[in-house]
Amino acid sequence: MLEENSLPRWHIYPDQEQISTHLAAAITRMAAEAIALRGAFHLVVAGGNTPRATYARLPSMGRDWQRWHIYHGDERCLPPEDPERNSLMLAQTWLSQVPIPGAQIHTIPAEAGASEAARRYAAILPAQRFDLVLLGLGEDGHTASLFPGHDWGQEKSSSPTLSILDAAKAPPQRVSLSAWRLRHTHALFFLACGSGKQDAIASWLRGENIPAAVVGRGADVWLDKAAWPESLPK
């Protein structure tokens, strides 16, 4: 369980291929542990291209798919068939290949617009903690669709979902789980690859108030050598 003021744990691998192998193994191990302890595995997935290789490894490694429940950390307000939709990437890479019941794959209905989709998605989120939340890291330090300079929903009184109408990256309308809801989990993983993430990692290490650092207290951060700031020892 996450500790409010604990430091993140940094796991540095030579390249993205090794990260994806180890991360997929960690996800399936945590699924087995959650199913043994609680009878189900509730996983929040990250979007974007970085976790694609990890998801591609899961069909051959996972077990007990009927006990998996999938949620999205965020989604872009685009049509379901748009190639930029996180849900489409996930279906093509992983979910179409495994027998997770459709009722347990909880896609954000972002095509309804940010405000309506956020309202609907809040109603289906589980009351209990997630078992694992997987997040990415943007070059500006954003995570999910929580961007610098915006309200991240850090208080427990905040809504579990946020409608984003003016995101710093296109498309401007998005839906995101709030910071407190992302942290309402037994375990939290971040994934960051490539030299473009060095500045964000450096800001995190300096304790700056960026979304990833706020959400990621006590998290496990998986990154390749290219993402680690060059000025710091690996």
Rank of each mutant, 00 (worst) to 15 (best):
A118F: 11
W222H: 07
E230W: 02
Y71Q: 11
N5L: 14
E33H: 12
A187Y: 12
L132E: 06
H184I: 08
I100S: 08
A36N: 11
P99H: 13
A122S: 13
A200W: 03
A117S: 03
M61T: 08
S115T: 15
K156D: 14
D224N: 10
A117N: 06
E155D: 13
E75L: 04
A192D: 03
P160C: 08
L182Q: 09
K169W: 15
D224L: 11
W68C: 11
T28W: 04
A103V: 12
L137V: 13
Q97I: 03
Q104P: 03
L132A: 07
A24Y: 01
S231C: 02
A227G: 05
I70V: 15
R181A: 06
A127T: 10
A34R: 04
K156L: 15
A200E: 00
S158V: 07
P83Q: 09
S195K: 15
L23A: 05
A118S: 14
L177K: 10
L132G: 05
E111M: 07
S115P: 07
D224E: 09
I12Y: 03
A168E: 07
P229Q: 02
T28V: 15
A91Y: 13
A213T: 15
V98P: 11
A25N: 13
P148F: 09
G113K: 06
I12E: 08
D199S: 14
E81F: 02
E17A: 10
F190L: 11
R217Q: 14
G216H: 05
K156C: 12
M30A: 12
E17R: 02
M30S: 10
G62F: 04
H106A: 01
P14E: 05
T93P: 06
R57D: 01
L78D: 09
C193R: 10
F130I: 08
L223W: 00
H142T: 02
A46F: 01
T50H: 02
S157L: 06
A118N: 03
Q18G: 11
V175C: 03
L205A: 06
S231M: 02
P148W: 06
M30N: 13
A114R: 10
Q66V: 07
A187N: 13
R183G: 10
Y121N: 12
K225S: 11
A46N: 05
D74K: 04
P172N: 09
R76D: 12
